[in-house]
């Protein structure tokens, strides 16, 4: 295989910001077929193939080594696979797409301000209510990893693919793990982030796959593009 593949978010604000950031660094990403095309290029760099993917698929493809480098959120790397962080190298954060993955509980839980309070509540939840404490989230891997770190094992995850903040009011779950930028959605839903409840600080990053196979030639191509972007990695 010759040439290298760059994965770029296929739509929305993230696509715009990514292309703006590359342009600001002197590399113009083209998308000849418009928004419905999934192949593109970088002007003047014929060795780079650009592929447009949804951000979560970019994380998956980087971890599997199907694309060589790409732009996606740190949260998605951690969520896609337990071994995600080891499978990639962060070449550089891009300074946009900032958001935190947080643990939030109902405001009314005045006794729960930190994770160790949650550990206590979880530990006898089952004996009080005949079921486990339920956590709504789309961040299943991140939740499991961090709750294990805090020594909390007594809970069940309810997978939530949208409007997670509504889960406590709708009775689907007791608390949530969700991504937030300003916290206003949480506040509007009478939810409060625990004092030590930030599980992950995420932002869009330029990320290189460690599982992709780089020949000397492809590695040189990668390093050359990265250096033009002010980034470098050791793989």
């Amino acid at each position: 295989m010759t040439g290298i593949t760059l994965a770029v978010p296929s739509k929305g604000r993230l696509e715009e910001l990514t292309r703006e950031w590359f342009a600001a660094n002197g590399l113009v990403i083209t998308r000849p077929g418009g928004a419905r095309s999934y192949l593109g290029a970088i002007e003047g760099l014929p060795e780079v193939t650009v592929r447009f993917f949804p951000a979560s698929e970019i994380a998956r493809e980087l971890i599997r080594g199907n694309v060589d480098f790409g732009v996606t959120g740190r949260d998605l790397i951690h969520e896609t696979s337990e071994t995600g962080p080891q499978s990639v190298a962060i070449a550089r954060p891009l300074g946009f797409g900032n958001a935190d993955v947080v643990v939030a509980v109902p405001d009314a839980w005045i006794d729960v301000t930190r994770m160790h309070d949650l550990a206590d509540v979880a530990s006898d939840f089952r004996s009080r209510h005949g079921r486990w404490l339920r956590i709504a989230t789309k961040y299943i891997t991140i939740t499991r990893q961090h709750f294990a770190r805090f020594g909390i094992a007594e809970y069940r995850i309810v997978e939530s693919l949208g409007a997670t903040e509504a889960a406590p009011a709708s009775g689907v779950a007791d608390i949530i793990v969700d991504i937030t930028t300003t916290g206003s959605t949480l506040t509007a839903n009478a939810l409060r982030v625990l004092e030590d409840g930030v599980l992950l600080q995420s932002e869009a990053c330029l990320i290189v796959s460690r599982t992709a196979k780089f020949s000397a030639r492809r590695r040189a191509q990668l390093d050359s593009v990265l250096s033009r972007l002010g980034a470098e990695v050791s793989l």
């Binding site: 405001d107 009314a108 839980w109 509540v121 209510h129 406590p168 009011a169 009775g171 007791d174 009478a190």
Partner: peptide, 10 residues
């Protein structure tokens, strides 16, 4: 006010 059930959970 938050629409939480008073009986379902805590």
């Amino acid at each position: 006010a938050a629409g939480l059930s008073l009986a379902e959970g805590r």
